[in-house]
Write a protein that binds this DNA or RNA. Structure first.
Lengths: 137, 137
DNA sequence: TATAATTCTACTAATTTTATAGAATTAATT
DNA sequence: AATTAATTCTATAAAATTAGTAGAATTATA
């Protein structure tokens, strides 16, 4: 499941992608049209900024805008930025690898092998979904 | 990500599937070989029982055994039993459908359509992984 | 200088997850 | 009948994560 944070991030990115080029969107406008608590959205937009997906302009008439084009931003990127690993267990993850504390022998763990296969499938699927692909539907 | 509960459930099922037919396994034996907190495992086995995946025998020399064969138990089944929906949002779920509280128009939600596609992919993958398929690796 | 936006840090509240405790029940053996 | 050893049940507690809020500081425009 996606956290609310990830869902809100996706909705915010979709909002930004739907604006005219060079348009700068205010947090309050995104919050109101996408139905996201404003203060919560502020944090999310900051995270997106730290992730180099959006840029911002401060001060009066400031706001946020996309740094990348919609087809360069995949569901996998956003998931990793907010919810972390795509894999079902850390031991099967590419970017968030961690050994299980209860693991007896990772090499022989039959569960892990299956979960690596799953991760490969879902990663491929999630990389196929972009902000742009979601809009043109 | 799978919760510990789901991971433990899978490990317990793998343990049971590796036993001889008609063998009855004690909780303590599963807990020790699979490195699962015993009291936690008790609850998990009860849940598996309520899900009709395992049977139990009470009293001395009692314990647990599989009710279904290993290739009838899929990763999708266990995920749904313990972690719920396969889909990334409730509004894209088959078995755990729920409308998003922040949803403006579900029919026009571009996010939802993409997540339904993802769910179809991951569900297919997760149904391909069975307890039996994990063992014969 | 006034205004209106982002930025930053800290905190709080709610929820979910991960267990743990202990008594009750059941059944086989002695 | 008593003992032993297992599951079953209900309740609770501790820890971690998620979701959301508050308010002051900063920045830039007019």
């Amino acid at each position: 499941m996606l956290s609310h944070k990830t869902k809100y991030a996706l909705k915010a990115l979709l909002y930004l992608a739907e604006q005219d080029a060079n348009h700068i969107s205010k947090t309050i406008d995104i919050a109101e049209t996408a139905n996201i608590p404003k203060k919560f959205l502020e944090q999310i937009l900051l995270d997106l900024k730290r992730g180099h997906l959006v840029g911002s302009k401060q001060g009066k008439f400031g706001g946020y805008y996309l740094l990348k084009s919609g087809n360069e931003i995949t569901l996998a990127d956003i998931h990793r930025l907010f919810d972390g690993a795509i894999a079902l267990l850390p031991c099967a993850s590419l970017n968030f690898y961690e050994r299980c504390s209860d693991c007896v022998s990772e090499a022989e763990c039959s569960l892990r092998h299956g979960l690596i296969a799953i991760r490969e499938e879902t990663l491929k699927a999630m990389q196929g979904i972009t902000i742009a692909s979601l809009i043109k539907k």
